[in-house]
């Protein structure tokens, strides 16, 4: 399958500038990575509403809290590794607990960061953000959806974490489709097994479905863009109708999207399940493809997991 690819950050930058034009309460913060996260576009258009805090992510989150407590809608951006773990207490105490209107939009999440290595490849951010009360967690699937997500969360009140990657990603969604946070998107219908992906793994799920079709297996594919709150209805319905679930995420298998789905199914509707994701280990330097291969994130891994689930289906 071939898709057009585009950078999510580019559409983030565009959406922010539009929001800045529409609303005077939008304020943007960055921590010396604005040229990478593309908040630089907003900075160039609205210099008086952009604050670069320097290399000081903890400082950024509490500054965001003060701005939000004073009525501003704040977008705070940096790389995901520095925007979650580095300033976890600031997010917990000053953003999530007081339920302030702050959108943490982070780029360079996951192992596809590539050459920079494990220090920069955060594979725990979904877990860290998901466990926080009041926090919404979104992983847009492509650049088109990123744009819509930014526009949508600007309208909501409260803390949101948005996870983006470094690499250009395949465009899977249609510009004219509406984005609804509460509804996971069914990208392909199927009856034999369900493949639930988030982020860059959704395109791999679609490819895996094609592969499975060659073996007469009819796979449903779901883009689970919003990990919290979780669209339990769509997940349970898929489990009920297909009888088996595979999840795929560019994140540790511990406490990420797959774990959220697993817990939902354990409590609501038992089916055989398998989680595709990064095993309990740090990453390393390498090219995206090599890393995806080594850490178990390829189409083949999904297909294999689906066959395993199918075998266990009664």
């Amino acid at each position: 399958m071939t898709w057009k690819t585009e950078s999510q950050r580019k559409q983030y930058g565009r959406a922010l500038v539009e929001l800045g034009k529409e609303r005077s309460d939008i304020v943007v913060l960055d921590a010396d990575l604005s040229s990478s996260t593309r908040t630089s576009d907003f900075a160039a258009t609205f210099p008086e509403r952009f604050f670069n805090v320097g290399i000081a992510e903890q400082n950024m989150m509490d500054t965001a809290a003060g701005l939000a407590a004073s009525g501003k809608t704040v977008f705070a951006s940096t790389f995901a590794v520095f925007g979650t773990g580095r300033c976890y207490d600031q997010i917990r105490q000053s953003i999530a607990y007081p339920q302030l209107n702050i959108k943490i939009v982070a780029s360079h999440a996951g192992i596809t960061v590539g050459g920079d290595g494990a220090s920069h490849q955060i594979i725990e951010d979904i877990a860290l953000m998901r466990v926080l009360p009041n926090m919404t967690v979104i992983v847009p699937v492509d650049s088109v959806e990123t744009y819509k997500v930014i526009k949508a969360i600007a309208k909501t009140k409260g803390p949101v974490y948005v996870r983006m990657g470094r690499a250009d990603v395949p465009t899977l969604t249609d510009e004219n489709a509406t984005f609804e946070m509460k509804n996971a998107s069914v990208m392909r219908d199927g009856e034999d097994v369900t493949l639930i992906g988030c982020g860059i793994m959704v395109s791999r799920c679609l490819e895996a479905a094609e592969e499975l079709a060659k073996h007469g297996v009819d796979a449903r594919v779901i883009n689970l863009h919003t990990i919290k709150p979780l669209d339990e209805k769509t997940i349970v319905k898929a489990a009920r109708e297909t009888g088996g679930v595979v999840t795929a995420e560019e994140h540790s298998v511990i406490m990420g999207m797959g774990s959220a789905v697993a817990l939902c199914l354990v409590e609501n509707f038992h089916v055989p399940m398998k989680r595709v994701g990064i095993p309990d280990t740090f990453g390393e330097s390498g090219s995206c493809n090599e890393l995806m291969e080594k850490y178990g994130l390829t189409v083949e891994h999904i297909v294999e997991a689906a066959h395993d689930v199918l075998k266990r289906k009664k």
Binding site: G114, G115, D116, G117, A118, S119, H120, E284, S285, G286, S287, E290, L291, K294
Partner: peptide, 14 residues
Amino acid sequence: TLRKMGSRLQGHPC
């Protein structure tokens, strides 16, 4: 071998 898969020379010091 800097930054290459399997290298002892990671993108950042390890």
